[in-house]
């Protein structure tokens, strides 16, 4: 006996994932192109003469020198030609050269990005571990335990990171001398900034994860799982956690994106090199190619993170792999 459902047999898991990945990569490429185009347009719309910006406000230069600079940077070409050349260069990873530092932007970014990536990844990893432990252990348990966990999470997420950073520095670096005060040379120099960033993130993630877990533990399939003889913790880890991971993943992706751009303050507090300090310099000195490079990098990071998050969603939740016909 065939049910009508069997005829419109849903896409199989693997095919659904591959198709989803292809769709999202295509969308990601489109977003990147859009970001690059917007950045280019913004460059065209910057008020004032780019050459004047290049030369700085105080310099006076002869028209010949100005013309020379124009030719050198290609400002004398018509806009479509410049756009085509710009996109072409981007495809080769060429983001242009810094006006101030006279170095390729890609090199500048490459020099500064890794400490930031290290910091962000470490912070998110620490945050997820703290959040998972705090939520899995306390979700749906005794009210006192739950209230304690919720309270620390609220405190953590509302503590300003720079204040926390200074406090941690004071205690662990200056007084106890466990961790270095500044720099990004060793793994131990990563600990304090990562923990500083992680705590507030862990607070938010913990709250969301606990809520997701408690919602999942209310579901009928939890009763079914327990009626098979599974223990409380097995039900939490094998069933409920996967359901709660969906909102956690979305939020973690979003927070990672913000962290990549939002490490400026922490990098300053801990005197770390990083993309944050590069951006600060570029913005204050109106070094437009560098600013644009950072903008494109952020767009790329966000697209990358969200593509990965979307694909993980597909892996976690098979229901997303097919779209039912609306009836």
């Amino acid at each position: 006996m065939r049910s009508p459902l069997a005829t419109r047999r849903a896409l199989f898991s693997r095919r659904g994932i591959i198709q989803g990945a292809a769709e999202r990569l295509l969308a990601g490429t489109a977003v990147m192109l859009g970001a690059a185009t917007l950045a280019f347009a913004a460059l065209q719309l910057v008020p004032g003469d780019t050459v004047a910006v290049l030369l700085g406000p105080t310099t006076t230069a002869s028209p010949e020198i100005r013309q020379q600079i124009r030719t050198e940077f290609g400002f004398d070409q018509p806009v479509p030609v410049r756009y085509a050349r710009y996109v072409g260069n981007l495809l080769h990873g060429d983001l242009g050269s810094s006006y101030q530092l006279q170095q390729p932007v890609s090199k500048l970014i490459n020099d500064q990005i890794w400490p930031t990536v290290q910091l962000t990844v470490a912070a998110v990893a620490v945050a997820v571990v703290i959040a998972v432990v705090s939520a899995v252990v306390t979700a749906g348990r005794r009210p006192a335990l739950r209230a304690t966990a919720t309270a620390w999470e609220l405190v953590a997420l509302s503590t300003p990171p720079h204040w926390l950073g200074i406090m941690l520095l004071t205690v662990f670096s200056f007084q106890l001398r466990i961790f270095p005060v500044a720099g990004a040379q060793s793994l131990s120099s990563l600990v304090l900034p990562a923990v500083t960033l992680a705590l507030s993130v862990a607070g938010v993630l913990g709250q969301v994860l606990r809520e997701g877990l408690e919602a999942a533990l209310e579901q009928p399939f939890v009763v079914t799982a327990r009626s098979r003889g599974l223990s409380q913790s097995a039900v939490r880890l094998r069933h409920a956690f996967r359901h709660a991971a969906t909102p956690l993943l979305t939020l973690a992706g979003w927070l990672t994106g913000t962290l990549l751009g939002g490490t400026v303050v922490i990098e300053t507090v801990f005197s770390r090199p990083g993309i944050g300090s590069l951006t600060m310099q570029a913005v204050t000195s109106r070094d437009l190619p560098v600013v644009l490079g950072v903008v494109l990098l952020s767009a790329f990071a966000v697209v990358l993170i969200f593509t990965v998050v979307d694909l993980l969603h597909l892996v976690i939740d098979p229901r997303l792999r097919t779209t039912e016909a609306a009836l």
Binding site: P220, T224, S227, R319
Partner: peptide, 18 residues
Amino acid sequence: GRRIGLVLQDALVSLDPL
């Protein structure tokens, strides 16, 4: 599960959808 089994209503939510 071993000695006593339980079946609930509506398997769409009584089986783990994931």
